[in-house]
């Protein structure tokens, strides 16, 4: 530690910022700051930036991870050209869009509704919220596994409940190309609606009550209060929740791998499942790397546009 006597100038120096930058044993404030950040910077470089760069490099080659001896050839944009022309890729993207779109819509409606109901003081509200939030805390792979049991045609409770209300007979949720995508949406909704609920609840609780009082005195109906006060105040919260959730949905893998592994056929082959199949079943590593880059750019770009929009909404 540098020895400094605690006189006024020394204190000023330690305080940083305000006083003129002085050297304490040859280290300026800026350099000191840099050395503190350096370890995490190196770590980030090693486990994030390098793999990303390597992946981008691979996407321009014909590399196959299962054939280490195979000569690696630079193929230019061939992988990208193939990807964009492939029906399977477009199908995977469509499946993903279908999943993300419906999951978000249903979760927003349910999450908002639950938050709305829980946003009044009643005995045991805290316990209730904890219970509702439980699914969110489970591992996605575990959730996937036990929902396969729930969906079992003969012994699963899902079929039993559906048949209790509507006599449709035995059906296979996960084995049917029309139903399987909805099974994914159902499980994701069961698991993640509480997340949206919690964030919306925080938003609802941040609305100053006196605004509602003012509106009430001004003769505004509950409907008008909802649209002029609640919605604008909660929207930034809701949008943030949707951002987190859609990124997660977009890269969803483990739960689907447990539930359907992309099947039946390719009915639930979301982008990430498709990616995994290309990379580790057909071993077209370069091709998969190119797809990963496309996914990355898409998510990153969409998230950035969304955040810009979000900032606008928040600042209103």
């Amino acid at each position: 530690m540098t020895q400094v006597s605690l006189k006024a100038p020394a204190i000023r120096r330690l305080g940083g910022g305000t006083g003129p930058r002085q050297r304490v044993r040859g280290l300026s404030d800026r350099a000191l700051a840099f050395y503190f950040v350096l370890p995490s910077l190196l770590l980030l470089l090693a486990i994030n930036i390098f793999p990303l760069a390597w992946n981008i490099y691979l996407s321009f080659t014909n590399y196959r991870a299962n054939m280490p001896g195979f000569p690696v050839r630079w193929v230019g944009d061939l992988n990208y050209a193939r990807l964009l022309g492939s029906e399977d890729v477009w199908a995977a993207m469509q499946h993903t869009a279908h999943f993300v779109g419906w999951a978000m819509l249903i979760q927003v409606i349910l999450g908002f509704g639950l938050a709305w109901l829980l946003n009044r003081k009643f005995k045991g509200a805290g316990l209730f919220i904890t219970l509702i939030a439980l699914p969110m805390m489970l591992s996605k792979a575990v959730v996937g596994t036990f929902w396969t049991y729930i969906f079992q045609p003969q012994s699963g409770i899902f079929n039993y409940i559906v048949n209790f209300f509507a006599d449709v007979g035995e059906f296979t949720m996960l084995g049917n190309a029309d139903l399987a995508p909805w099974a994914l949406i159902l499980v994701d909704t069961w698991m993640w609606t509480p997340f949206i609920m919690l964030i919306v609840l925080a938003g609802l609780r941040s609305v100053p009550q006196d605004l509602y009082e003012a509106a009430e005195v001004d003769g505004a109906s509950s409907w008008r209060q909802f649209w002029t006060i609640t919605v604008p105040m909660v929207l930034p919260f809701l949008m943030l929740a949707v951002l987190f959730r859609s990124i997660e949905c977009f890269k969803l893998f483990d739960m689907v791998a447990e539930l359907t592994s992309g099947g039946p056929g390719s009915a639930t082959e979301l982008a990430n499942i498709f990616l995994k199949r290309q990379a580790f079943e057909t071993w077209r590593t370069g091709y998969a790397a190119a797809f990963a880059v496309i996914l990355f750019v898409t998510t990153f770009g969409a998230a950035n546009i969304y955040v810009k929009f979000w900032t606008k909404v928040k600042e209103r």
Binding site: D210, E213, E216, V217, D218, T228
Partner: peptide
Amino acid sequence: APAERDVAFVFQQFSLYPHYTVYDNLAFP
């Protein structure tokens, strides 16, 4: 209910509608 009483209230803490312009705040009632 407050709306049935036909009173106008100037709140101590202002309670303006934050997402509205001044004009729309004045027009609100």
